[in-house]
Amino acid sequence: MTPLISLLFALAGLASLALAMPRHAAQAKLGALWVARAPWLRGCGWAALGFSLLVRLARPDWRTGLIEWIGEAGLAAAIVVVVLMRRPQLLRGLPAVVLLMVPIAALLLR
């Protein structure tokens, strides 16, 4: 449960961070409006990534959580790399879709 939630936040965060980079914004064909807001995207990206770590650290088994989070963040980054490689345009919607999945996952797995 917690692993899935923090993985989703890490994925949203890293996807936003990638979109804030000019090269990947071009790959994803990100609209000019969003390209101009790259610093804002970057801030949100770091916030989501930080929050995914916080989700793990706020629990009693935070030791295992911290170790898992490092692996999870790597896995999330690998997903972003694969999306950019295969279907770069999907990256545009990724942060929003992933964040929408958080409450759904929370409800389903409760």
């Binding site: 692993p3 295992t64 170790i67 898992e68 692996g71 999870e72 790597g74 896995l75 690998a78």
Partner: peptide, 22 residues
């Protein structure tokens, strides 16, 4: 213990495995 990963619940075991493959 970090190296051995014996503590790991199944999710972290898979992460260890993926990182090892990487």
């Amino acid at each position: 213990g970090l190296h051995m990963g014996r503590f790991a619940p199944s999710f972290s075991r898979w992460l260890y495995f993926l990182c090892g493959l990487a």
